[in-house]
């Protein structure tokens, strides 16, 4: 039997109200529009898409930093969408986040040891010598030295600061890590060590991880499964190798072909260069959200939102035209 997913999203929707003209109709920005996915223990799901596609909002909704507008968020089978802040406290112990900017997400007035130890106090897990022991163990685990516990965040380099963020997330023994662009702010030579560390820890501790990123090469390297978002919707998801070697949705294909590859001998490869920009999520196109930039769009794409076509191994995509070609 397959174990219960650590995280399950079922039709997650997040709408933000936006200011509109006096007496005008109230306008809504739909950042996430019916996203369903699941992550099991020991599994990394890469959530990719370009800026404004809603991938970070998904992460924030799971943490309930944004209240979901609709849909269910199940953590180990329990729906947390209706929970209050007090009800969320035990959930926050099980779900931890690593943010993009290690300069902004660490308190400059606390020592490194205090930053990493704080979640232990908040959740009443340890104090005194026991707390010091757990914190120094965690320091070692992420490749920092326990004698660095008395230093302040600004005394650490960018890569070390991101290690501190990882230590702070791991110290309470979470089941799920939400990593939102965890290496995007780091220099290339530093990125590699943080990526290696995340993969190693995820494997050792059997964590479920939601890895949110715009960088397709990094996502391919770290993820077991991948979900691709466009304008608030999932357009394709499935096992990593299916998404990267056998992409079905025209957006996934374009996204992959647009990635600059650090190998000049692949320069001549065929590329799909999309025209135009992502439409505004305040006024999304009718039907398929991708149709305004899609190289294979037809009339039907403007009239109806495509359903999910399921292939083998849990690989699915949402495209009218490709669905017909796959079936034929």
């Amino acid at each position: 039997m397959t174990p219960m997913p650590i995280l399950e999203l079922d039709g997650l929707v997040k709408r933000f109200p936006i200011k509109s003209r006096l007496f005008g109709p109230k306008q809504w920005l739909t950042a996430v529009n019916g996203v369903s996915l699941e992550i099991r223990a020991g599994e990394t799901l890469g959530l990719v898409g370009e800026s404004g596609c809603g991938k970070s909002t998904v992460g924030k909704a799971i943490m309930k930093l944004h209240d979901p507008s609709d849909g269910r968020i199940l953590i180990k089978g329990k729906d947390i969408a209706p929970l209050t802040r007090a009800g969320m406290k035990p959930v926050w112990r099980k779900v931890q986040t690593i943010f993009q900017d290690p300069f902004a997400s660490l308190n400059p007035r606390m020592t490194a040891g205090a930053i990493v130890g704080e979640p232990l106090t908040i959740h009443g897990l340890a104090k005194g010598a026991e707390k010091v022991r757990i914190v120094s163990d965690t320091f070692r685990k992420v490749g920092l030295r326990p004698d660095q516990m008395d230093r302040f965040a600004h005394e650490f380099s960018g890569g070390q600061r991101q290690r501190l963020s990882i230590a702070r997330a791991l110290v309470v023994g979470p089941d799920l890590i939400i990593a939102d662009e965890p290496v995007s702010a780091l220099d290339v030579s530093i990125q590699a060590s943080v990526i290696n560390l995340l993969i190693r820890l995820q494997k050792e501790m059997g964590l479920a991880m939601l890895f949110i990123s715009h960088d397709m090469s990094v996502v391919e390297h770290v993820s077991h499964r991948v979900a691709v978002m466009y304008l608030g919707r999932l357009v394709e998801s499935g096992p990593r190798d299916q998404i990267f070697r056998n992409p079905q949705h025209p957006y996934t294909r374009a996204l992959l072909s647009a990635v600059p590859v650090a190998d000049p001998s692949r320069r001549g490869r065929e590329r799909i260069v999309l025209k135009g920009d992502v439409p505004s999520p305040i006024d999304p196109p009718s039907g398929c959200p991708f149709r305004t930039r899609c190289p294979i769009a037809e009339d039907v794409c403007a009239s109806a939102m495509p359903g999910v076509t399921a292939l083998s191994h849990g690989h699915g995509f949402a495209c009218h035209v490709r669905a017909r070609e796959v079936v034929a």
Binding site: A192, K203, V218, E220, H221, V222, R240
Partner: peptide, 23 residues
């Protein structure tokens, strides 16, 4: 080192099998 530290699209093995080069 810079080239080795980059994951290259289409060349990933099983997750965790290959480490990126760290400088």
């Amino acid at each position: 080192g810079l080239l080795g530290s980059l994951p290259i699209l289409g060349q990933a093995g099983a997750v965790g099998d290959t480490e990126l080069t760290e400088i």
